[in-house]
Simulated scan of single mutants.
Amino acid sequence: MTVLLVALGAAVGAPLRYLTDRAVQARFGSAFPWGTLTVNVTGSLLLGVVFGAAADPAVSALVGTGFCGAFTTWSTFGYETVRLVRSGARRAALANVALSVAAGLGAAWLGFAVAHLLAN
């Protein structure tokens, strides 16, 4: 049953990641990977909420592992950072790493803290 919940969450998360990334990139129209940053930070916030609320294992599998796992993307973050470096945009690459790590961790912490407070 758990594997089906993970698959269901992933089936929703992956296309939503693609659509969100494309919409954000189209809006900003720059070489900086704003779309990937957006999905990774949003997914970190949601994952923090799920675990801060001490969700039951089924919700954790569906939303945490399935949806957030497919919605966020470490590999694309890595590829886009390398692409920025190779194109000579080293400052943008460094900004991408710094923003992604700081905002992702901050969003996860915030989501966890808010959900934990509301659940107690």
Score class of each variant (00 low, 15 high):
T2S: 13
V3R: 07
V3A: 14
L8G: 01
A11H: 01
A11G: 15
V12Y: 03
V12W: 05
G13D: 12
A14S: 14
L16V: 14
L16K: 04
Y18P: 00
Y18K: 02
L19A: 13
V24T: 09
A26W: 08
R27L: 14
R27V: 00
R27Q: 12
S30P: 00
P33M: 05
W34S: 06
W34Q: 07
W34M: 11
T36W: 09
T36Y: 10
T36G: 07
L37G: 02
T38P: 02
T42V: 14
G43R: 12
S44C: 15
L47R: 01
L47N: 04
G48T: 12
V49L: 15
A54I: 00
A54M: 08
P57F: 07
P57K: 13
A58N: 12
S60P: 00
A61R: 13
L62M: 09
V63H: 10
V63T: 09
G64V: 07
G64S: 05
G64T: 04
T65V: 15
F71N: 05
T76L: 10
F77H: 12
F77S: 04
G78F: 06
Y79E: 11
T81W: 01
G88S: 12
G88F: 11
R90E: 06
L94T: 10
A95D: 05
N96S: 14
N96I: 04
V97A: 10
L99P: 00
L105K: 00
A108Q: 04
G111I: 08
A113C: 00
L117V: 09
L117K: 08
N120D: 13
